[in-house]
Amino acid sequence: MKVITAHNLTKRFGSFTAVDGISFEVEKGEIFGFLGANGAGKTTAMRMFCGLSRPTSGEATVAGFDVFTQQEQIKRHIGYMSQKFSLYEDLTVKENFTLFGGIYGMKPSQIRENFGLTVGRLGIEKYADTLVGGLPLGWKQKLAFSLSVFHSPEIVFLDEPTGGVDPVARRQFWEMIYDAADKGITVFVTTHYMDEAEYCDRVSIMVDGRVEALDSPRNLKQKFNADDMYGVFLYLARTAKRS
């Protein structure tokens, strides 16, 4: 089943074409890596899929809803985690989850139940009533991810979720992503870390607003005759005219 489809999706700002006719499909339960240099158009593309920005032309659906006309329905069926681990620091862990559960229209009983499961899985039951501001960065980031899948969305969009986090925490974070994917949540993730790209089922690489390569990490390495994803990325990113 396809949960994301894009066909010639384009976004222009004035005369600047940020996203230039990208086309691809993402399967349910897939971990889809969305790579590209800074300014390649990743974030713009992601914002269109999240219903935050209207495409200029092309077609796309997310969770079966049209990105032009059904942005509200899309927002109900996705989770989103921004680059800054967006939790409210002056709220406790529990208050953060109660807030977002409420915003996504979950019932209080459902929120309680899910919250119990979440803190149990993270092993932080005794910090449920601690202010988020006092927690270590690695925890905040795991909490932010848990928050983005708290309402059991069909797809979760992660925008550079591991920036500034140490390698051990990143490894643990990816285990959480695998858990989510096992439960059937599709993961759409942008990253700058090439080792993380290796963890993805399939990877697309954007250059100057276009998708220049799309395949499994294994096939990509073969095709571009590189030892690792870093080699593939450099080979493609070198052709960029922007940046």
């Binding site: 999240c50 219903g51 935050l52 509200e72 927002k75 109900r76 996705i78 989103y80 985690m81 921004s82 680059q83 800054k84 681990f85 967006s86 939790l87 409210y88 620091e89 977002f100 915003i103 996504y104 229209g105 969009f157």
Partner: peptide, 14 residues
Amino acid sequence: ERGTMEMLLASPLP
């Protein structure tokens, strides 16, 4: 500034 606005805008809250 904190990035929470993105998160709110991506939520079903109008």
